[in-house]
């Protein structure tokens, strides 16, 4: 019985350590940051390719005659 209590206490202690010691996932954060930065600054061409046009106005020559 004593042994069981002791082991439970140890387990509790271990669980406590786990909770306290959750570290900041620096590598995952960098990866997340790079993904968002790529998207915000469009350093990478998006798959569609559409959103990555240069700043100029795309010239459409569809021959739409406006009255």
């Amino acid at each position: 019985m004593n042994k069981l209590l002791l082991s439970l206490a140890m387990l509790g202690l271990l669980a406590g350590c786990v909770t306290i010691n959750i570290y900041f996932p620096a590598a995952a954060a960098e990866k997340a940051a790079d993904k968002i930065i790529d998207e915000v600054w469009q350093l990478k061409q998006p798959q569609g390719g559409d959103a990555a046009k240069p700043a100029g106005q795309p010239v459409q020559s569809k021959g739409e005659d406006k009255p």
């Binding site: 042994k3 082991s7 140890m10 387990l11 959750i22 995952a28 993904k35």
Partner: peptide, 29 residues
């Protein structure tokens, strides 16, 4: 004694799974 070992094994497993969780991607969606 067996029980003690099992308990520690469970603890170690919990620790390991926490590490795995911490190494996963961050939620940004």
């Amino acid at each position: 004694m067996n029980r003690l070992i099992r308990l520690f094994a469970a603890g170690a497993l919990a620790l390991a799974s926490t590490s795995v969780l911490a190494a996963a991607d961050l939620q940004i969606n």
